[in-house]
Structures are given as structure tokens and as C-alpha cells.
Design a protein around this nucleic acid. Sequence first.
RNA 1: GGAGGAGUGGCAGAGCGGUCGAAUGCACCAGUCUUGAAAACUGGAGUCCGGGCAACUGGACCGUGAGUUCGAAUCUCACCUCCUCCGCCA
Length: 441
Amino acid sequence: MLFYWAFLFACVCYTVCTMLDIKFIRENKDIVALGAEKKHIKIDLDALIVLDDKRRELLSVIEKKRAEQNEVSQKIVRSPEPNYKAQMITEMQTLKADLQKEEEELKKVMHDWQMLMVAVPNIPDMSVPEGVDDADNKEVKVWGDIPQFDFTPKSHIDLMTNLGMLDLDRGTKVAGFRGYFLTGAGAELQFALWQFVTDFFRNKGGFTPMIVPSLVRREPFMGTGYLPQGEEDLYKTQDDEYLSGTAEVATMGFYMDETVDKKDLPIKMISFSPAFRREAGSHGKDTRGIIRVHEFYKFEQVVLCEASHTESVKYHEELTANAEELMQALKLPYHVVVNCGGDLGLGQVKKYDIEAWLPSEKTYRETHSSSYFHDFQTRRLNIRYRDDDGKLKFVHSLNNTALSGRPLIMIVENYQNADGSIRVPDVLQPYMGGKTIITKK
RNA sequence: GGAGGAGUGGCAGAGCGGUCGAAUGCACCAGUCUUGAAAACUGGAGUCCGGGCAACUGGACCGUGAGUUCGAAUCUCACCUCCUCCGCCA
């Protein structure tokens, strides 16, 4: 209970003392440790603090020597006396030798220090439930009726293959494991969804549409928290770039190392890009169909806002609501879960997953993932704004899927008829030339 | 792929071994003048880390990282980015 008060305090002072810099970690070790524990992430904070003591000590010694060096340097310049000059230079040579030793030591310390620092997770919100993995996520909302079929519903694989919408055999032939082609009405339906989403955000207003790179340098991955921990799940090129698994990475990189104008906040972006995932940790999972693929297209909502917990929460709810609105327009039954501590990423404070009903599996499967980070990402990416008090602050960042590859699957399965045809959702019909049903030719 | 050139403060642009955190101009902020504004004049102002209640003070930062030197924006090397020309390709 005491910890919860400490927790609350941490949240309150959040906007004042920016978080997860070393100062915050030192002053709030227990809260950080508790947060890591909730996320089931192992981190040795005591080792970090010992190392930080060492770092501070070395820094102080080095800075004193450098001050002396600077001072004597000035004397050397001004002194008209050659002998005195030579003597001082000799003294400085000795000082320099010491300095180099200490700098070498500091370098080593800094290396280890940085390794530990990037591994310190952000603190989850109080409202995040305890738990180890996605099985412990808590359902917070259910929308729509699960369809009752008077026949045995088919999987998207059978439905789409039969209707010439999907070609997995040739997908594998051409692209290898988890490869696929969307063909005919399959491609058309996907295009329709993209158009629908584009129009949805245009009508909503405030979101800048973006088409962003997938081939991205290391820095934005470090900044967003996908590296160094997620190396395994990323494709890497021979030029040391990575293929990103979400438009979030490049979109967050857009303002990297920049100071944005406070009057432009919040900055809302709706980004489109291909997404690549090695699925290194999911070898046996979802091997049939296109639930889990190495390559798909994605619209991502990204928001940068003022450094305020209240603002973050407000936009988090908004981004989640946007995604729900899309699902409701498509009339896809879904539920929302709040992710438990163990299912949160390193930088995430809180996350909602939206999961839509998949008849062939008789379960909900994830279609959207909505999370906020406070300044975890922007601190690493160095994205700041000048506040009214004249101080530079790190903005807060958050993101949520708008459309991944999966809703297509949910549509196909939920809208299927007994004869294997598929009704086209009302809102998509205008984008399909008025087509109301997809049937076999 | 080949040959050259360049990266300095919000912007433009000097500096090319010490007196440089950095001239100058523009932009910015405050003040003087003015009924008000403009102009003119005067002054101020970078970021990060540390010490101090504070005034203030120490260190770092001239694309990035190493090196030479008592001392580097300035010299050397590597890398990154941008520009120009040739070639190739959409």
C-alpha cells in the first residue's frame, strides 16, 4: 500500500521531474524496481547505481583535471618567460597522462552504464493488471454480437482460396514460408479497406497522412525501444539498416533531434507503410493462413503531445476510440483488453489490445495495439518542445494501429455465407464499385 | 560505380593551432525614444552534465567517432550526411 502512494507520487511529479533519467532512477529506485517486477523484466538497479557512483566520481576527478589544464593553458599562452613556459608544459604532460588513464576508465564505465540504462523499463501505470503474459490480460469491453452460423463456418484460408482471393501455394513458392498473394477480390477488398481508413481519418480531421519508410536506420529503432532488445525479430540489411515491423518507428523518427513548437502540439499522424516481422519467437504459431505473416501493410496512428500524464491518457483513450470506431463501422465484433504487466513492452506505460472475433478459431485475435510511453521514446529520440516556463521538455508519445492486415481476415470469416460467398461490409461497398457480395466466378 | 566539393549557434556566414562558446548580418527578447507603432539607439540571449539556497561557478558541445598536441572549430584518419559532374537504372 505504501508503494502505491509512492507510485501515485511518482505519477504526480512525472511532468516535473522527467522520468527514467538516471536522477529519477536514483531517487525512486523502489518504484522503478517495482515497475520492472510488474513487467517481469529483470534489471539489477543496485548494479546500475554502483556503476553510476563510479561514473560520477570519475567525472568529477576528470573535470577538475580538465579545469586545471584549461587554466594552465591560458598561462602558457600569456607567459612571456620561455623557461616558465617549458616547465608548465612538462607539468601538463604529466597531468595529461593521468587524465588519459582516467578517461579510459570512464569510457569502460560509460559503456556498461549505457547497456544497463537502455534496459531499464518504463514504469507501468497503476491501472495495469498484474500478470505474466497475454493470458492474464483483462477484458474491459465487449462490442457486437458473435455471429451464429447455421452451418460450420470456414476459415479464411478455405474461403479466400476458393474465391480466388488468396494464393498461399504460390506465395510459398515465391516468398517462402508465410508467403502469400492477395489476388482478385482479395486485393480489391484490401484496397477498399485502405481507402476507407484514409477517408475515415480525413473526415476525422487533425491527422496528417504520411507514407513512411520501412527501411530504417538503427537510431529510430533504439529510440522507439525496439532495439537493442528486439534484434531477433527484425530483418537487417547488408547496409546495417533494419526493416521495421510498424510505421511507428519511422514516424517517431520524423521529429528525431528536433524541438517542436508547443503550439503545434498535439501532432497527430496517420502513417502507412509495409511492415516486416521475422516472427523469430513464434515458430510453431499460426503457421496456416495469413494471421501471422512476415510482410503486410499497416496504417498506424501516432501522437506527440505535451509532457503531461493527463494529456497522454486523454489521447490514449482517443486513439483507442478511433480504432473502435473503425471496427464498429465494419461491424466486426471485438473486445478490448487491458494488457497485464508482463505483456507490456519495455517503454509502454499502459496498453490496450483490440481483438476481433475469428469464427474459425472461435476466439478473439488481436487487430490493434494501443499504447502510451510518456517520454520514454522521446527522451531517446530527443524530441522536445519549449514550455511556457521557458524550459525544454520531452514531448509524450503514443501510438495505436489503425489498420493491420488482420481485419481483412475477420471480415472474410464473419461475413461468410453458407455457400462460401462473402458479403461486403456496407461501408466498403463504395470502394468496391458498389459490389455487395464476393462470389465464385 | 567513378571524380570532385561541403558540413560552424534559429537562419546566413567568418574563423583554419592558444587571446574562440565562437566575428558579422538577419531573426528573437527587454529597455530608451514615441500618444501608439515603425525606425534608431542601448542591453540581453544557446544546449547538456555537475556544485551552490542563491548571485554564481566547473566541465562538455563547431556532422559523428578516434588520433596528434601542454593546448584542436582549426592538423591526421575513419565513418555519416548533403551538393556538383560522369556512368548505370527506374
